[in-house]
Amino acid sequence: MEKEIYIKKSNGEIELFLFEKLKQSLQSTGASKAAISTIINRIKTDIYDGISSDEIYKKAFVLLKKHNKISASRYSLKRAIFDLGPTGYPFERLVGALLKEKGYKTKVGVIIKGRCVTHEIDVLAEKDENVYAIECKFHSDAKAASNVKIPLYINSRFLDIQEQWNSNSNNKTYLKQGWLVTNTRFTSDAINYGKCVGLTLLSWDYPENNGLKANIDTLALYPVTTLTTLTKREKHQLIEKNIVLVKELAKATEIMKSIGISDHKIKRVLTEVNELCQF
């Protein structure tokens, strides 16, 4: 029987480490059974009581990258979203792109007049003559969670613009619902409040099997920060030029050249782009 190992999570909590959980994370990247077995056996020799989840991630990422760079890119998704910061705008673009792929017409950063005050809405989405006001709460710290105060505030803003929007006879659409999207997690009170008032909540892994990670993987809408062929500096230079999604690089050769990426490296980047997005 294997010795029980307790690890320190990014939020400071201590939890029993389960190799099965690591195995599932590696399987979700598309890595081969042989690669997963090799990585787990190696980590078994390096792991110790009190090790941080971040250290385990780094060890697994380095080993996975040696076996399959595309799987490593997928495995790094959560960290890659943190790397979109420090501002929340690239995350808003990512959320807008997810909704667009699902058939919504989207606009990012929209000023809307409410009954009482004017609001800036992160993403406005329309589908079947219904409009949805989406607020994005980006955290650059993995320990951060959106507590009940956040959806309380977002719902009050939504109600203000909903009243004004739906009472305006010039509007041909109906402002139906508010959404709140975060890249970390919601507290249980925040989730219960969202359910109670009809506010749609989307976090890294909520709703179960339909959270941010699941949607990004299904739609292959990876942020440029997932790429292993680019340096951190190059990634942020691209974000500054409004290139947020990996798939946007397929038509951004000139932009890559403009930040000093060589023709040879561009070919390597585009190969990774094609394999990750499965063009």
Score class of each variant (00 low, 15 high):
residue 26 L to P: 00
residue 192 N to E: 03
residue 278 Q to M: 05
residue 143 K to M: 03
residue 279 F to H: 02
residue 31 A to V: 13
residue 27 Q to M: 14
residue 183 N to R: 14
residue 279 F to E: 02
residue 20 E to Y: 07
residue 17 F to L: 15
residue 13 E to V: 08
residue 197 V to D: 09
residue 163 E to L: 13
residue 121 I to G: 05
residue 40 I to D: 08
residue 15 E to I: 10
residue 8 K to L: 14
residue 208 E to L: 05
residue 122 D to A: 13
residue 33 K to D: 12
residue 5 I to D: 12
residue 260 G to Y: 07
residue 224 V to A: 04
residue 14 I to G: 02
residue 25 S to I: 00
residue 172 K to P: 02
residue 276 L to R: 05
residue 232 K to H: 11
residue 129 E to N: 15
residue 213 K to I: 15
residue 235 K to Y: 01
residue 181 V to F: 03
residue 93 R to F: 13
residue 182 T to R: 09
residue 150 I to T: 15
residue 120 E to H: 07
residue 66 K to D: 12
residue 139 H to G: 04
residue 273 V to F: 00
residue 269 V to F: 00
residue 182 T to C: 09
residue 164 Q to Y: 14
residue 18 L to A: 11
residue 111 I to Y: 06
residue 276 L to S: 02
residue 258 S to L: 11
residue 145 A to G: 04
residue 174 Y to G: 06
residue 44 K to P: 07
residue 268 R to W: 02
residue 232 K to S: 07
residue 52 S to L: 04
residue 99 L to R: 04
residue 234 E to M: 08
residue 135 E to F: 04
residue 17 F to C: 14
residue 54 D to R: 00
residue 101 E to Y: 09
residue 27 Q to N: 01
residue 266 I to H: 01
residue 159 L to G: 05
residue 202 L to K: 03
residue 28 S to P: 06
residue 176 K to G: 03
residue 99 L to Q: 08
residue 93 R to W: 10
residue 133 A to T: 03
residue 103 G to S: 06
residue 77 L to D: 09
residue 19 F to M: 07
residue 161 I to V: 15
residue 54 D to F: 09
residue 77 L to Q: 12
residue 253 T to H: 01
residue 175 L to V: 14
residue 18 L to F: 03
residue 245 L to D: 02
residue 147 N to G: 06
residue 30 G to A: 11
residue 18 L to D: 12
residue 109 G to L: 05
residue 80 A to E: 03
residue 262 S to K: 13
residue 217 D to Q: 01
residue 35 A to K: 10
residue 85 G to R: 00
residue 120 E to M: 11
residue 257 K to R: 15
residue 91 F to K: 05
residue 211 G to P: 00
residue 271 T to K: 15
residue 122 D to G: 05
residue 103 G to D: 05
residue 240 E to H: 13
residue 8 K to S: 07
residue 154 I to S: 08
residue 41 N to P: 11
residue 45 T to Q: 13
residue 105 K to W: 01
residue 198 G to N: 07
residue 95 V to R: 07
residue 48 Y to R: 05
residue 253 T to D: 03
residue 199 L to K: 11
residue 250 A to D: 04
residue 124 L to Q: 11
residue 221 L to C: 13
residue 168 N to S: 12
residue 233 R to P: 02
residue 111 I to A: 11
residue 138 F to I: 09
residue 61 F to R: 12
residue 87 T to F: 01
residue 140 S to W: 04
residue 102 K to L: 10
residue 64 L to I: 03
residue 216 I to L: 13
residue 88 G to N: 08
residue 65 K to H: 08
residue 66 K to S: 12
residue 31 A to H: 10
residue 217 D to H: 11
residue 179 W to T: 15
residue 251 K to L: 01
residue 208 E to M: 00
residue 268 R to K: 08
residue 38 T to L: 13
residue 41 N to H: 14
residue 95 V to Y: 09
residue 210 N to A: 14
residue 274 N to Q: 04
residue 268 R to T: 02
residue 260 G to I: 10
residue 256 M to Q: 03
residue 183 N to G: 04
residue 13 E to A: 14
residue 152 L to P: 00
